[in-house]
Design a protein around this nucleic acid. Structure first.
Length: 378
DNA sequence: ATGTGC
């Protein structure tokens, strides 16, 4: 295995092992962001892949300026892990799938009190609360497959005999509207730290974080309700955000775009919907800008997935995975875009983090039932 | 990514 923390041009750093798939375009985008005004350091995670102008799976630390476009449109996107009281013994996937029903519609009036309990300010995006959204978002029942630290799992309250629930979603249309406002007003030039404009953005940004956290909680509660089960949240970590931070002794702004914080306790790094997810204990390290991969990372562009896979797999085949799990995805284009082949192998991503000394792996989690969408499209 | 753009 080669060195897992590599130096690129422009002072950029990349966390990757020899077997981690990294696209050249993503490296170029990372080096481009390193040259932005006020940018002090950038770090690519092993799930790095090209985005719209800026890479996904990276952290960016700047001084004196901050860049809403580096956080992207899904402000507050993150992972919440719940433990449930659903027994892993004698699982009936047909029953669970039927009970889940449709989770794409807005929450009905019986949820009013639960929604109000978050005390969110009115945004006009209330109809999105409790819905997962599209793209790589999902909610997945999982089971503990392999423990590497029984004591740590016991401390977290994770047991083999009950299913876990992992929710990956964000601020839906709200974050998108906030970024659109920024791009309309200021283009991609970023904001002067301390300015009125930056205070305005940060205020809306913080509102989107709270909205996204509430959304994940409502998604989990709604699923547990449908499954006639109960549960508790174990962790909830945002991976698209900007926060004040000190790096190299400098006060500045740490942007994370598909980069999971490594200074906030245990996190889950999910693979694709047909792959394992890993529960890891981060080891905070400034070399990676206090960040980790947020998932497997795309290997193929969305637009090329159906052409590559349509001759090999039917939609029905893609709804059953090699690990024995099921994927509920009524959107025919999306199920190809989200096929396991379109993503990097999670072992190559988590392996790079482990070899770089950035995580201790606590457990391997196996997918049981994934909800993407029941709506279908067009 | 987006109660999805022309």
């Amino acid at each position: 295995m080669g060195t897992c923390i590599r130096n690129l041009s422009g002072g950029a750093v990349l966390v990757a092992a020899d077997d981690t798939w990294i696209e050249g375009k993503a490296i170029q985008q990372l080096e481009t962001t390193a040259r932005l005004g006020g940018m002090h350091r950038v770090a690519g995670m092993p799930d790095l892949h090209p985005g719209r102008g800026y890479p996904v799976g990276a952290a960016f630390f700047s001084v004196g300026r901050l860049y809403p476009a580096l956080v992207g449109n899904d402000i507050g996107c993150g992972m919440a892990l719940w433990r449930t009281d659903i027994p892993t013994a004698k699982l009936h996937l047909d029953k669970l799938e039927k009970r889940l029903g449709n989770l794409d519609l807005p929450l009905d009036e019986t949820w009013q009190e639960a929604v109000a309990s978050f005390g969110l300010p009115a945004t006009g995006h209330e109809r999105s609360l409790g819905t997962i959204g599209g793209g790589n978002h999902f909610a997945e029942l999982q089971q503990l497959d392999e423990s590497y630290d029984d004591a740590a799992l016991a401390a977290l309250g994770i047991e083999r005999k009950h299913l876990l629930l992992l929710v990956h979603s964000g601020s839906r249309g709200l974050g998108e509207a906030i970024l659109r406002e920024q791009v309309d007003l200021f283009g991609h030039h970023g904001l002067e730290a301390g300015s009125e404009a930056s205070a305005h953005y940060l205020g809306r940004h913080d509102g989107a974080l709270r909205f996204a956290e509430a959304n994940r909680q409502l998604i989990a509660r709604r699923m547990l309700d449908r499954l006639r089960a109960d549960g508790d949240v174990l962790l909830d970590i945002n991976h698209n955000l900007v926060s004040p931070a000190q790096v190299d002794g400098l006060d500045g702004w740490l942007h994370r775009k598909g980069a999971t914080p490594s200074d906030q306790g245990a996190v889950v790094i999910p693979g694709s919907r047909g792959d394992y997810s890993y529960l890891v204990q981060p080891i905070a390290d400034e070399r990676s800008l206090l960040s980790l991969a947020h998932g497997a990372g795309r290997k193929w562009m969305r637009s090329e997935c159906k052409d590559r896979l349509a001759s090999r797999y039917s939609v029905e085949q893609l709804s059953r995975t090699a690990l024995g799990s099921r994927v509920i995805c009524a959107d025919r284009a999306l199920i190809y875009e989200e096929a396991p082949e379109a993503y990097k192998a999670i072992d190559s991503v988590v392996g790079a983090l482990r070899e770089a000394g950035l995580v201790r792996v606590l457990a391997r989690l196996k997918p049981v039932l994934t909800y993407k969408t029941r709506g279908g499209c067009c």
